[in-house]
Amino acid sequence: MRGQDLLHPRPEGLYCPPGDFFIDPVRPVARALVTHGHGDHARPGNTAVMATQQTLDIMAIRYGADFAQTSQVAEWGVPVKIGDCTVTFHPAGHVLGSAQIAVECDGLRIVASGDYKRRPDPSCQAFELVPCDIFITEATFGLPAFRHPDSKAEIAKLLRSVAQFPDRTHMVGAYALGKAQRVIKELRDAGYDEPIYIHGALQKLCDYYETQGIALGELKPATLEKGSKQDFAGAIVVGTPSSFADRWARRFADPVAAFASGWMQVRQRARQRGVELPLIISDHCDWDELCETIDEVGAEEIWVTHGREEALVRYCELKQLRAQPLHLVGYEDEAE
């Protein structure tokens, strides 16, 4: 069996003919396997969905309990037969519940890694390396210019700024699922125990993380109690990136715009967005980790998708590995 007979792109998403399912379809299909809960990977309206329990829970929080007609829980590491093939879910280290999906048929194994990262993250399961014949890697930060620093150092930078500007509000833009909880969790791990104020859009997901054993400390809604901007002076407020461009943000005292994202590595990006304090904290692998994963996974062939495919394909060529870009439509850059 050739790789493209087991998985190939279709307009709806990555399709598996022997199992008759799609991975992370962008439009409704009969059977979907979902890697993780981000909106561009997990969409409502499919007939049957298979995902990890946490991803299913997150989809229910975001889309309501009727996000699909039927759902099936994928247990970590337990092979499940679908049609003529077997699928297994392994942790991807991207956000809570995020999975790589190994698809196997006639002795050929392809791992669709979805979005993944290798760094320790106190808010989700750690990435697991799954040996395979063909590895499908993301390439969100697939350029040698992306080398994420240690997130602890970035959190320390934020805390230094809070100490230096105690009269200002630090507004941290962070994607609602995963990044926000990770930033909060890392602040707690760094010893910050003041209340953290959150935008309403984060509340349900933060509550859910708590139920999954990720302690986020005292969170308060970032709403004005008595109408004074000074309520938030010296505080850290976490909100979605778009909320800070919104009128919502006007309630804060002389805010410092911070943004937690791998894109913040590039100063001009930070500048264009009006970010004063870039925090390079990413849910994705940086270049070194992408290369390392390609080296370690032992696949004979690499398919590169969503992001900067060209550079990673070039890296594989230099390593004399077979590689090709896999053109999937409908996936967005992180928080852009």
Partner: peptide, 29 residues
């Protein structure tokens, strides 16, 4: 480093000093 990979990075970052600071092989620690 490979000139193609450098070129792709430079195109994305846009500033020579910044690009070199980021792609320099010894990482970020």
């Amino acid at each position: 480093m490979d000139p193609v990979l450098f070129g792709l990075s430079y195109n994305f970052v846009g500033d020579l000093a910044e690009t070199i600071s980021l792609v320099w092989p010894t990482g970020n620690s």
